[in-house]
Design a protein around this nucleic acid. Structure first.
Lengths: 211, 211
DNA sequence: TAACATTTGTTATAAAAATAACAATAATTT
DNA sequence: AAATTATTGTTATTTTTATAACAAATGTTA
């Protein structure tokens, strides 16, 4: 299958989570406009994304929620689960660990790393913290392919380098340092301060939204 | 001035932070391609963004870093500082508080809120945690306009409602619930699980990047 | 000083993403 | 059973974002 647009991948992930919530509430079918409302987007957007993944509903009956979840999972999940590690086990690293609980069957959070001896050996939600000295060893032995980087600014570049050397294929970067990695490594940057400054800007310059 | 494109606002925020780092390293001037390299983007992108804010360098000498920071600040900062509150003082709330330290002169983090009696009264980086019961009172009295939402899923919608009723103008939403708010409230959603699933997808479907 | 090189600022083009338009289909109403 | 309605799936259009192209400016070299 052709590679999907980035934004579609993002939304598919959100659709799936929302659809799981619907199932919990006993819902079996959902219309495009219902799903759109839940996500604050338009029904056309939903239908277009679903077109991309080639799912067909029974016409006029909405989508079968379980089927749709299955189809989305087929597209965005890997066959084999991917192993993930959190690098930096401060508040943010722990917060992410908590978000993870029992959530994603195809993404296993398997280890955390920190430099602080007090943290090493500690656990949050069964995820154990190892010394950063053992990074390479544990990444290689556990076939970890994705790293979530939450270390302090000053060590971010150094860490990224070690991660790539250890065979990591994707990095989700929460530090405020813009990393430079080889083009075969997928890098997703997330910067909280920028998000906040963006909110501040658009609060001031309300974009004249009218409905 | 005309409202800037969202992506440009995001990058301006990043430019500024990067430029501050350059000053710390004793640098005074910077070329568009240098700044681009630091942020992993192209020089054209940088020049185009700078064009948007109407800053002019001395030709061929690169940009004066201090001047540029000043100009960016003029554009993306508010005149009067905006007050910000963190709603939910768990690991994530605390992590965000830490990110904030002494960082943004025009964005004051003034209070945190939680429902857990054990947390109420506690402090992280001088930011005190109040009971959620006092949300409205404190928001109104302190003229808080931006809320960072890090509460558990089940209370997210309820919280958002109270925030809007209390006069909040912008919400940065870290919960995995998609909120529906009035169109005059600026809402920025951030979803860590989606980011991670996106990394997983593109690690699997490496987009054939070659240079 | 003439030719060249470098870097910006801006216009032009391309790519990505979102929205709109609408035919096709199937249920419902008259 | 014909007309109407609701909903999907897809193509067409628009908007947003990124990239490319290049003139203007200015310093450097021959």
């Amino acid at each position: 299958m052709k590679i999907l647009p980035e934004k579609t991948v993002e939304r598919l992930s959100q659709y799936r989570r929302t659809l799981y919530n619907c199932i919990d509430q006993g819902k079996e079918r959902i219309y495009s406009h219902e799903l759109a409302l839940l996500l604050n987007i338009t029904a056309v957007q939903v239908r277009r994304d679903i077109m991309f993944i080639g799912y067909n509903s029974y016409q006029r009956k909405g989508y079968d929620i379980k089927d749709l979840i299955g189809k989305i999972s087929l597209i965005i999940d890997t066959q084999e689960p991917l192993n993930v590690a959190v690098i930096g086990y401060g508040n943010l690293g722990k917060a992410i660990t908590t978000y993870f609980i029992g959530n994603r069957p195809k993404l296993n959070l398997v280890a955390a790393f920190d430099i602080d001896p007090k943290k090493i050996g500690s656990e949050v939600n069964k995820i154990k913290c190892y010394s950063i000295d053992r990074l390479r060893e544990i990444i290689v032995n556990n076939d970890i392919t994705i790293a979530i980087l939450t270390v302090p600014t000053h060590s971010a570049r150094e860490m990224a380098k070690i991660l790539v050397q250890s065979g990591i294929k994707g990095i989700l970067n929460f530090t405020t340092v813009n990393l430079n990695v080889a083009p075969n490594i997928y890098l997703e940057e997330y910067d909280m301060i920028t998000s906040l400054e963006k909110v501040a800007y658009f609060v001031k310059h309300k974009p004249e939204e009218e409905e």
